[in-house]
Design a protein around this nucleic acid. Structure first.
Lengths: 192, 192
DNA sequence: TGCCGATTATGACAGCGGTCATGATAATGG
DNA sequence: CCATTATCATGACCGCTGTCATAATCGGCA
């Protein structure tokens, strides 16, 4: 149910997503909403945002496991590829639910704004951790995580607007080498 | 009136912005909406998005005029500073209206999606032009413009969610040196 | 002044939104 | 088997939205 909410939110935005629609999409009875989400729409949206944050964080681990030669640029490329794959196969309907919640509710609903902030933080945390594991100085890792998430979110936005994966591929190509250059020499098992 | 629409859209999102609210904010009579925007809300939103695109493009020229030593990193820093200034002085209520339109309407309203795409394009165009004027190879300039807009949009989003200018300042600090490194040696009047 | 188009004012309408109240059904445990 | 809780179903309410229809008002021009 929370998953259905996230899916609809990332497509139509928070305000345009109705609770009846969420229930229908989840195949759940409308009465369940009131029972499991006594906090109303606000609670459902917040949980959807939190779920998205955990999901994004979990993806980082899976991306790292798939990389044979882990590099910052490779991780970023994997993050971007998830979106290019979706856009190419399913069209440009989707977006980031956290971004949608930020745009639609950050000003009016304090709890949702806090949930979005927490989601971004829980997304950046594993990224920074993996960056340091790859040899990026720990002080720089946090900054690079911010840069990576920012660039990805912006590229998602532009890609959806232009109905093209080009912003995504461009950002990955431009940022990859720079990210790799932030690995401290002598760390890890790099061949060089 | 279009300006008022853009201002409300960037704060509350497209769906949450009512036409009556726009008219009230603009100090305009409600009947005027129907007269000047026979296309209804869709037309008003599209014009607001187009206006935002032109505004962003115009800012690029003004930023360039203010820079004594024009560099790609300096231009990006100026773009970022516009947002840090606003957030510090007026709070984190605002966002990018083009981003809001993309999130809220890109899937459902084709004309608005096209307007958002045009706005992003007309924003990137002067950026790429100035980059080439600063000595960035013309093929690379377009890619860097995409990167700059993406990173800025994403940082705006994160800043609004986290109620902190840190994403903005971090992105500017990280990306600036890389952007500057893309200037071809020997071009322009650099001292070196 | 009298007219006519441009503008504004106002109200109605139909639809959808979230929320609540109430009642039915199922599941659980004594 | 009963009772008590959890889950679901349904309909009603109120507020708001975009849109339209209609009428009033204004501005210039003959």
């Amino acid at each position: 149910m929370v998953f259905s909410a996230a899916q609809l939110i990332r497509r139509d935005g928070v305000t345009a997503t109705g609770l009846r629609e969420v229930a229908a999409h989840a195949g759940a009875p409308r009465g369940s909403l009131q029972h499991y989400f006594p906090g109303g729409k606000e609670q459902l949206v917040n949980e959807a945002v939190e779920w998205a944050g955990r999901y994004a964080a979990g993806r980082i681990d899976r991306f790292m496991a798939q990389l044979s030669r882990p590099t910052p640029g490779g991780l970023f490329a994997a993050m971007v590829r998830q979106w290019t794959d979706e856009y190419r196969s399913a069209g440009f309907a989707g977006g980031c639910p956290v971004a949608a919640a930020t745009v639609d509710c950050a000003e009016s609903v304090a709890s949702t704004q806090a949930a979005a902030a927490a989601a971004f933080a829980s997304w950046r945390r594993p990224i920074a951790r993996e960056l340091t594991a790859m040899g990026v100085p720990s002080r720089k890792a946090g900054a690079l995580a911010i840069l990576m998430v920012s660039a990805l979110e912006g590229a998602i936005l532009m890609a959806k607007a232009e109905q093209s994966v080009r912003p995504l591929t461009t950002v990955a190509r431009e940022l990859g080498p720079y990210l790799d250059s932030c690995v401290e020499a002598g760390s890890g098992e790099e061949v060089l």
